[in-house]
């Protein structure tokens, strides 16, 4: 369990906005080793799962070299968008972080 202020690897396509620069301002209490969201193993992501690489507001989702969608939950702002988008395909497992962990909004 450590306080961190890093996260997000994705970049906005055309605008080149680094979401990591935005998340840098936020406070998180990371539950190390216990990610609250998991992408289920898959060969080829559905269109819905693939869309998370640009839909996630914290840029948590990225495409790896072999074509699978991966998640790094450290910058997650717990909005739930990814769960809603993939509800039909069931490709991710979404839970709240354990009580007290995750993002801590100062202003909200």
């Amino acid at each position: 369990m450590t306080m961190i202020a890093k996260a997000g690897t994705a970049e906005a396509g055309s605008a080149g906005i680094k979401v990591a620069d935005k998340l840098f301002q936020n406070r998180y209490l990371v539950d190390a080793g216990r990610p609250h969201i998991k992408v289920r193993p898959h060969d080829k992501p559905s269109k819905a799962l693939l869309s998370l690489t640009h839909t996630c507001p914290a840029g948590c989702y990225s495409l790896n070299d072999t074509g699978q969608v991966e998640i790094s939950v450290d910058g997650c702002v717990e909005c739930g968008t990814c769960r809603v988008v993939t509800a039909k395909t069931g490709e991710i497992e979404w839970n709240y972080p354990r009580g007290g962990f995750g993002v801590l909004f100062k202003f909200g």
Partner: peptide, 18 residues
């Protein structure tokens, strides 16, 4: 709408920046 984000290539933070 989340459905619109999912169908477009826009990022939420890209829109905010614009």
């Amino acid at each position: 709408l989340v459905s619109d984000f999912a169908e477009n290539q826009q990022t939420p933070y890209g829109l905010l920046e614009a």
